[in-house]
């Protein structure tokens, strides 16, 4: 450690750690509140006070959810969709971003513009549905994976990251006689772990939480994704009377049982939290190297 342990530095450290601890507590609060609510059995979930611990613990909501058989197929379908979605996204996006990162590539501006327009203009629900139908993708997981595979936003973010990789590394590979594809695979991609992990996380979470496309494109109950199943648990417990449901549609109230709603939030977040630490190491790699060397 070369860091000088000055008094000023210590004070700064102290402030930093205190601020971060406070920030952590604040951001943890809504999540904690959901956890408590999901475990709360009494009517105190309807309290107007702030809750920190459940008054009476009950796993009723989780029991109800776990007994809902489609939950597990929902998890499976969501995992499949997320994995395929992330994989396709990474392959297609990186393949697109790399050529665009070469400023001297002819028509680069035209390609970028072509890409950018798709970020701003979309055709709307009806043409998209007709397209999926014409491609015979209805009721297939590909209907959920393919349309979002290449987004302009992701491609441009990745392109910029590729541009920040020092030219010299590529040059030395080129001197060795490597072509663009080899450079891309053996030089660029290994250096791009942070951006690949970032986009994988962004897109993965997007897939994990998506439900509307699945409701529209997937008719088969066995192929429904987790979020649709979770919404179904809520709705089902809410009311079985169609007329009451219509009235709720018209008045937009959220009547759903709090405990169940909170449990459903937990059921969809927790797997993400388990996965996260694995992605996290890519964001601290460089820093770690710096810290050790520094």
């Amino acid at each position: 450690m070369v860091y000088r342990k000055t008094r000023l530095g210590m004070a700064a450290d102290l402030c930093l750690y205190a601020a971060m601890t406070l920030l952590m507590l604040i951001t943890l609060y809504p999540f904690w509140m959901q956890l408590v609510t999901s475990l709360e059995s009494g009517a105190s979930v309807y309290t107007t006070r702030l809750m920190f611990v459940p008054e009476q613990v009950s796993l009723e909501a989780y029991r109800l959810a776990f007994h809902f058989k489609p939950l597990w197929t929902g998890y499976l379908n969501t995992i499949v969709r997320t994995a395929l979605g992330v994989l396709c996204m990474l392959i297609v996006t990186s393949l697109t971003a790399y050529p665009l990162s070469k400023k001297d590539l002819p028509f680069n501006r035209a390609f970028t513009g072509f890409l950018l327009l798709t970020m701003l203009f979309t055709g709307g629900l009806i043409p998209n549905y007709l397209l999926i139908r014409e491609l015979h993708l209805l009721n297939s997981v590909w209907a959920l994976v393919l349309p979002g595979t290449l987004s302009a936003f992701n491609a441009l973010v990745m392109r910029n990251f590729f541009r920040s990789i020092p030219e010299s590394l590529e040059e030395s590979a080129r001197v060795d006689g490597a072509g663009y594809l080899r450079i891309f695979i053996s030089v660029i991609l290994p250096l791009s772990a942070p951006v690949l992990a970032t986009l994988a996380l962004w897109v993965g979470v997007g897939h994990w939480n998506a439900w509307f496309d699945s409701l529209i494109y997937i008719a088969d109950g066995h192929k429904q994704v987790l979020q649709v199943v979770l919404r179904k648990i809520l709705i089902e417990n809410d009311t079985a009377d169609m007329n009451a449901m219509i009235q709720k549609m018209n008045t937009h109230s959220e009547y759903t049982d709090r405990q169940l709603q909170a449990a459903v939030v937990m059921l969809s977040i927790v797997p993400m939290l388990v996965v996260y630490p694995f992605a996290q190491k890519y964001f601290v790699q460089g820093v770690m190297v710096g810290a050790i060397k520094g």
Binding site: V92, T96, F114, G123, P127, L131, L150, Y180
Partner: peptide
């Protein structure tokens, strides 16, 4: 390398734009 991305854009973004 640009071809797959180009195809994706054409099919899934530009084709529905007639909407």
């Amino acid at each position: 390398m640009l071809v797959p991305g180009f195809i994706f854009l054409l099919v899934f973004n530009y084709a529905p734009m007639y909407g």
